[in-house]
């Protein structure tokens, strides 16, 4: 599987990463190689392997519906880049 520069640009945008033309070229090459390694897996016989969605053999990890103590608003807002009263404040955004 190969990857073109447009796809890399798209992925960069989805990740909100800005790439310079030089970086784009370099990353396209690197991603191409990485995908090549992954392609090798396709050549393996995995008919007898169960599909894996989690690496640990555990299931049904649940917790009781019992409340814990939440953070105080002051604590919660401590790292906020910007706040207004008890709210986090962000640049205006309406989709």
């Amino acid at each position: 599987m190969s990857i073109d520069q447009e796809t890399v640009k798209h992925i960069a945008h989805l990740s909100r990463i800005e790439l310079q033309p030089k970086e784009l070229e370099k990353l396209s090459g690197q991603l191409h190689d990485i995908l090549g390694f992954i392609d090798k897996i396709s050549s393996l016989d995995i008919d007898k392997v169960e599909p894996t969605s989690h690496i640990l053999p555990i299931s049904n990890v649940l917790r009781e519906d019992t409340p814990h103590v939440s953070l105080s608003p002051e604590k919660a807002l401590e790292n906020a880049p910007s706040r207004k009263g008890e709210f986090f404040s962000v640049p205006k955004i309406i989709e």
Binding site: S82, K84, G85, F87, F88, S89, V90, P91, K92, I93
Partner: peptide, 8 residues
Amino acid sequence: EADSSLVD
């Protein structure tokens, strides 16, 4: 709000 959005 007019120039920002507040998050709860």
